[in-house]
Design a protein around this nucleic acid. Structure first.
Length: 461
RNA sequence: GGCGGCGUAGCCAAGCGGUUAAGGCGAGGGACUGCAAAUCCCUUAUUCCCCGGUUCGAAUCCGGGCGCCGCCUCCA
């Protein structure tokens, strides 16, 4: 698979030598529920992981949980809660939300607080090598000691100084230097260190966990493009300063979710909690919404857009329900149809191979559906249904039942009975009552379809 | 101000040097139906923000505009 890397600004071939992809995705800071914008990288990179696995690769997917940082401390103080308790609470909610979003749990979800001794060790290593310095209880990274600084975000050290909008802490040797360790202020959570009680800086948390769990060189490091600078730039500087090796082979940065063109952000107040959106539109509509736009581009959120995604998902399930009614042994009449499907399958994978083009891949699926309908052939329908289900699996889409299988035998027979009775009413031209039955059943999620060969029923979600 | 990205039909969205410019949503017309639903057929971009240039050939490359957005501070 070729993926566009932020560092090289080119498509890079993902080719792990040992068949194992080491992938680190920046996870949430657990001071609140995640909003639907936060969910984009989780959904997209989970889908990427599944696709890679479907191609026979092993993926170690690490997605951290930042459970100590300024925002958590501030929020805890505002609410009069214990920071650790608050973080634990939102950690649990985060996992619950991942499930709602249909995101598989990452291979590892390390909480930062579990790695603090490792972080202290790491900072000591940087100090020993002369890349860091201590200023009364704080430790700073010395940016000037790492020549590659700025390569990832594409800005030179000078450019950054020119554009600096932050007040410079005069205790730092250089305005660009950033904190590796923050000495604890009164009332803040703290851990012991050679420089006094304190806690690690955010950038240090992520590098240490990624290096410790995945080794010195990762295949993929991913996150939102708002993390390129300073977060990922700083991670890279620390890691490569210490190990002297390439930290990450491919940097992936997803585009932002916007609202009316503006980034969705807690600070702007223009956000919706992920769980609320899922409740309103369903897991699959949310996933489809994300996957129908290329992962690197900005994506505009609106209820209309989600409705549209829901309609598109509904069309696929309609198709799957129709295909599911055909007996498994039915064969397509057109012998060329199997070849068409084989070609579609190739196109599907080719789209994903090319910078994980999920919109392109989804379009192939829709094309298969249209083509199968057009044949008007039960065998083709059946075969296409199986193919669509199979291909959509690594995207985490269209695996639901959506058919009679969920119902027990009794319910099926009851439904058949009702349909029979209604057929008699229709024969007697008692359409008023027949329609009433149809409406009532519809409101229960059972849809009736009258055709020349009788009435069929279909379950709708 | 610096760095980066985006602008394709009513809407969403692929395409990134030669295709009839994918696909979805929506809309209109037709078939099917007692009426529906679902489905099928047809229609809905001679054109890709604008202006130049390169090329036999450009939505795709180059230059210049215009508009929108992101990062430069915590941020997925």
């Amino acid at each position: 698979m070729r993926l566009y890397s932020t560092l090289s600004k080119k498509l890079e071939e993902l080719s792990p030598s040992d068949g194992t992809v080491r992938m680190y995705v920046c996870g949430p800071t657990v001071y609140d529920l995640i909003h639907i914008g936060n969910a984009r990288p989780f959904i997209v990179f989970d889908a990427l992981r599944r696709v890679l696995e479907a191609q026979g690769l092993r993926v170690i997917h690490v997605q951290n949980v930042t459970d100590v940082d300024d925002k958590i401390i501030r929020r805890a103080q505002e609410e009069g809660r214990d920071p650790a308790e608050l973080a634990l609470h939102y950690t649990q909610e985060y996992f619950a939300d991942l499930e709602r979003l249909g995101v598989r749990p990452p291979t590892y979800s390390p909480p930062a607080t579990a790695f603090i001794p490792k972080m202290v060790e790491f900072i000591q290593g940087l100090l020993k090598k002369g890349h860091a310095y201590v200023v009364d209880g704080d430790v700073y990274f010395s940016v000037r000691t790492y020549p590659g600084y700025g390569e990832l975000s594409g800005r030179t050290v000078e450019e950054q100084l020119a554009g600096a909008r932050v007040e410079v802490d005069e205790r730092k040797r250089d305005p660009l230097d950033f904190a590796l360790w923050k000495g604890a202020k009164p009332g803040e959570p703290h851990w012991p260190s050679p420089w006094g009680p304190g806690r690690p800086g955010w950038h240090t948390e992520c590098v240490v966990m990624s290096l410790y769990l995945l080794g010195e060189t990762l295949d993929i490091h991913a996150g939102g493009n708002d993390l390129v600078f300073p977060h990922h730039e700083n991670e890279r500087a620390q890691a490569e300063s210490l190990t002297g090796k390439t930290f990450v082979k491919i940097w992936l940065h997803n585009g932002m979710l916007t609202v009316r063109g503006e980034k969705m952000a807690k600070s702007l107040g223009n956000f919706y909690y992920a769980r609320d959106v899922v409740r309103l539109f369903g897991t699959e509509a949310v996933r489809y919404f994300y996957l129908s736009r290329h992962w690197r581009k900005p994506l505009d959120f609106s209820f209309e857009a989600l409705e549209e995604a829901k309609a598109a998902v509904g069309r696929v399930y309609n198709f799957l329900a129709e295909a599911g009614r055909v007996p498994g042994e039915a064969q397509p009449q057109d012998p060329g149809f199997a070849a068409y499907l084989a070609d579609a399958e190739q196109r599907f994978w080719a789209e994903l191979e090319d910078d994980f083009n999920t919109p392109g891949a989804l379009a192939v699926l829709q094309d298969v559906i249209g083509e199968a309908y057009k044949r008007g052939d039960p065998g083709a329908l059946r075969m296409a249904g199986d193919k669509v289900r199979c291909l959509a699996r690594p995207l985490g889409l269209f695996q639901g039942e959506g058919s009679a299988a969920e119902l027990g035998k009794l319910s099926e027979e009851l439904l058949d009975l009702i349909v029979d009775l209604r057929a008699q009413l229709r024969q007697e031209r008692n359409f008023a009552l027949a329609d009433k039955i149809r409406e009532k059943l519809a409101s229960l999620g059972v849809e009736l379809r009258d055709g020349p060969e009788g009435t069929r029923w279909i379950l709708r979600s």
